[in-house]
Lab assay of single mutants.
Amino acid sequence: NQASVVANQLIPINTALTLVAMRSEVVTPVGIPAEDIPRLVSMQVNRAVPLGTTLMPDMVKGYA
């Protein structure tokens, strides 16, 4: 099972992602792969992401 990126805190809309804001977890459905965490740092989310939410490619500006 592949680990996905999960919000480690509430991430407000247009907030730049940080290492502290993300964690890796095996979840269903699978979201952005955990190995992409370094690439996600400083990218912005295009919606509010609640704690525990799996990050999907369409939630991160410039990711997809």
Rank of each mutant, 00 (worst) to 15 (best):
Q2A: 12
Q2N: 13
Q2C: 07
Q2I: 12
A3I: 06
A3Q: 09
S4C: 04
S4W: 01
S4N: 01
S4A: 03
S4T: 03
V5T: 05
V5E: 02
V6R: 01
V6M: 03
V6A: 00
A7R: 00
A7C: 05
A7D: 00
A7W: 03
A7H: 02
A7T: 10
N8F: 04
N8S: 13
N8A: 14
N8I: 06
N8E: 05
N8R: 10
N8V: 07
N8D: 08
Q9R: 13
Q9C: 07
Q9E: 11
Q9K: 13
L10G: 09
I11N: 00
I11T: 02
I11L: 09
I11E: 01
I11Q: 02
I11S: 00
P12W: 05
P12H: 09
P12R: 09
P12A: 10
P12M: 08
I13G: 08
I13D: 10
T15R: 07
T15L: 05
A16N: 10
A16L: 12
A16E: 14
A16G: 10
A16S: 11
L17W: 00
L17F: 01
L17R: 00
L17D: 02
T18I: 06
T18P: 03
L19Q: 07
L19D: 05
L19M: 12
L19A: 08
L19S: 06
L19W: 12
V20G: 15
V20C: 08
A21Q: 13
M22K: 00
M22D: 02
M22G: 01
R23Q: 04
R23T: 07
R23A: 06
S24G: 12
S24C: 08
E25G: 10
E25F: 06
V26G: 03
V27R: 14
V27M: 05
T28V: 13
T28I: 13
T28E: 12
P29Q: 05
P29S: 04
P29W: 05
V30E: 10
G31L: 02
G31K: 04
G31F: 03
I32E: 00
I32C: 05
I32P: 01
I32T: 01
I32R: 01
P33M: 06
P33C: 08
A34E: 08
A34N: 05
A34P: 05
A34F: 05
E35I: 14
E35D: 13
E35P: 06
E35Y: 12
D36M: 12
D36W: 11
D36L: 12
D36K: 11
D36Q: 12
D36F: 14
I37V: 04
P38S: 10
P38K: 12
P38G: 11
P38F: 14
P38D: 11
P38Y: 13
R39L: 13
R39S: 10
R39W: 11
L40T: 00
V41H: 03
V41D: 03
V41T: 05
S42P: 01
S42C: 09
S42K: 11
M43Y: 09
M43H: 09
M43D: 04
M43G: 01
Q44E: 11
Q44W: 10
V45A: 04
N46Q: 08
N46C: 07
R47W: 06
R47K: 09
R47T: 11
A48Q: 13
A48L: 15
A48K: 12
V49Y: 04
V49F: 03
V49L: 08
P50D: 12
P50C: 07
P50A: 13
P50S: 11
P50Q: 11
L51P: 15
G52K: 00
G52L: 05
G52W: 03
G52H: 07
G52D: 09
T53L: 09
T53N: 08
T53W: 11
T53Q: 10
T54R: 00
T54D: 01
T54F: 03
L55Y: 00
L55G: 02
L55Q: 01
L55A: 03
L55W: 00
L55F: 06
L55D: 01
L55P: 02
M56T: 10
M56D: 03
M56Y: 07
P57L: 05
D58F: 15
D58M: 11
M59H: 07
M59V: 06
M59S: 00
M59G: 01
M59Y: 11
V60R: 00
V60K: 01
V60M: 04
K61I: 15
K61L: 10
K61V: 15
G62W: 07
Y63N: 04
Y63G: 02
Y63H: 03
Y63P: 03
Y63R: 00
A64D: 14
A64P: 12
A64Q: 14
A64V: 15
